[in-house]
Design a protein around this nucleic acid. Structure first.
Lengths: 207, 207, 207, 207
DNA sequence: CTTTAACCGAGACGGTACGTCGTGTCTTAAC
DNA sequence: GTTAAGACACGACGTACCGTCTCGGTTAAAG
């Protein structure tokens, strides 16, 4: 795994420092919870999903869910990441621009179909509190932003990209256009969009 | 009024065709509802806001709210538009690019401060159903999108703008960057963003 | 009309003394209200019946109902009396005991079928306030009680009945047994009951 | 306990057959609900009583009430029985007639004061549906009816009572007169009634 | 091999809000 | 000046979930 890390269901690494006493956390329960969420999301919106429904579907006590995740957004985000699975790191390309395009295509492929919708619903739900918003960013969006930002900085340094552009703004425009398009009611990203965005990214970035 | 039209609280114009029977809708109630929402939003998120709380604050029955608006998003959106009030149409500028910049600045000024946060929360809440999403778009976002899209088309036709760019994508990138920035947890649009976006818009659009 | 008098729907007789100004009270409305109630009661309990439903079914404003009757019990009671219609006074019989039996049979015949159920529901609804209880008694039950009480007193005086019995208690036992039976869930008064009650009344009353 | 059994607040005895899982029912909540009802009934009619008011007064969630009782009638009936408490079985008397009189006095003492009014209001409320009516009968009225009916049968068998009378009708006349008197608006059963009824019962029953 | 600690399922708990229904009052235009 | 239509403030309904709690019952490491 690389970009799509999973904070909650691959929990704190540092639990080996002292062997925990008592019954260990049940890996089976975790998986059945995440699977339940994914199955329920096929027929339900994130908003309509309830912790109680998840618990019932997973055959698990509500307490077990609350013990591992602070709220619905956190579970659903983890379930999405769990379903997306490990995405290999991208190979470095000949030009930085090509790397950027690869990164964009990879991101958009991630959100093809139902997943894009779910991601956007998670992002929307996350708006309700500072805490969940941070959770969403640190566990998902930030890594994509950083990867792209690093590439842009790299391109600026090696003279491939214009230097008079704000890296942050470029990132906002690129990811923003994807998010905004999905939020506008588009069921999914159509081919026209998928092809045009990388082209337009060139216009912004290249000298 | 131009852009910020208000669907619900300036109701159907065509009510003159048949004189309405029964007690007419109370304008006082409408206003106290919208005012209540705006007052409550000073201390509460849209998510945390409840129809019951609005009714209580406004000194109004819940039924009265449900009679006029289908759901919370609709009331809150109307309350925002009511608070924003009438925004005059922009004067035409010397160049189309200048018109675009004016439009952007006007939009961003609209969302300065608390309003941006509220708008984004409305947009987030609207994601939960197709119906509310449509409501949000048709009553707010669409008019801004169309204004910008028309300007871009105009620029393409008069030779000021590049023709190899998708108008839709350009709109997505510009409004998307604003929305995305606000959704990232930024309390408000800072000066750097406000100044950089129009510049970058030029890069995308101009030949 | 004799026993089953109708207080509300045969209103003030003296409306002819001065020509009333404005639109006259609509006799049609009264009748359509009472008919609506009777039609609705075929498929609904008194409890489930609402003033709003009556108004709608009758094609009448709620205000009209409230102007004529103080509450639901009053309308329904009137509707029942209206449906029962005029019951002729009974002919005097050879013996007082026979008169009592005639009176009982007449009362029980009145309550055969759906009407008994409705009467009992009205009586039940009337329990909720002193006001409606009085209304029910004065407009329905009292006259039956008085008729019976007078007969018993007559029987005592002419030496036919025992004198050591409380007239009030006898009335309570006789009408009470009917009411109580109907309140126990019996759909209607069965033949056994209808035949046994007069016989038992004899036992109580005769020397 | 004998006659005044309590279905709901002395729940199923046979819960030992399978050890109950989950958090056990809170006895405290039960009691505070029943107490709340009794306190509220001092100042309110059964009709005017609302589940919401009970929940608030008892410091309990509405769900807790709905979990244990199907409707208002059921709670109020239980509260009445709870307040009446355990009534010892009556000692057998020398004659069956004396047993009947004891039973009647015991029943009428039960309904002295506010309790009679409440009982009648419950009975009235119960009329609104078959379900609540059954509830009322099976949890209260039936046991009194059966006790009396058994005594009457006993009296018939041992030659003390007349055999040409319908037991069911006798029961209806006796309990009916009490219920009917209370329904007529009498605040309570006065001494005259309380003394006359057993005497008249003798007339009906004895040879 | 018993204790102890943390987990688990089940599900009851006090709450909040939902969207609906009915109440009795009011305010219009129509007749 | 009454009527129908219907909007109004209000209060309660019964339901759905929330996040917390309290049970009996595992499951392991520590004593």
């Amino acid at each position: 795994m690389s970009n799509a890390s999973m904070k909650y269901h691959e929990p704190t690494v540092s639990e080996d420092e002292e062997k925990r006493r008592g019954r260990p956390r049940s890996e089976t329960s975790k998986k059945s919870i995440l699977n339940a969420v994914n199955r329920l999301l096929l027929r339900s919106s994130v908003k309509a999903l309830s912790i109680e429904a998840i618990a019932k579907k997973a055959g698990v006590g509500k307490t077990t869910i609350y013990r591992w995740w602070p709220n619905k957004v956190a579970v659903v985000l983890d379930a999405l990441l769990y379903q997306l699975g490990n995405t290999p790191d991208l190979p470095t390309s000949s030009t930085t621009m090509q790397s950027v395009k690869n990164q964009l295509e990879r991101f958009m492929r991630l959100l093809k179909g139902k997943n894009g919708k779910i991601l956007i619903e998670i992002m929307a739900e996350a708006q309700s509190s500072e805490e969940t918003l941070t959770l969403f960013y640190e566990n998902f969006m930030l890594q994509h932003e950083e990867t792209l930002a690093n590439l842009i900085e790299e391109g600026k340094e090696n003279g491939e990209f214009r230097e008079d552009i704000s890296t942050a703004l470029a990132v906002d425009m690129i990811y923003g256009s994807i998010v905004y398009r999905l939020m506008s009611g588009a069921e999914t990203l159509d081919d026209e969009f998928t092809q045009n965005l990388p082209k337009e990214a060139s216009t912004i970035l290249l000298k």
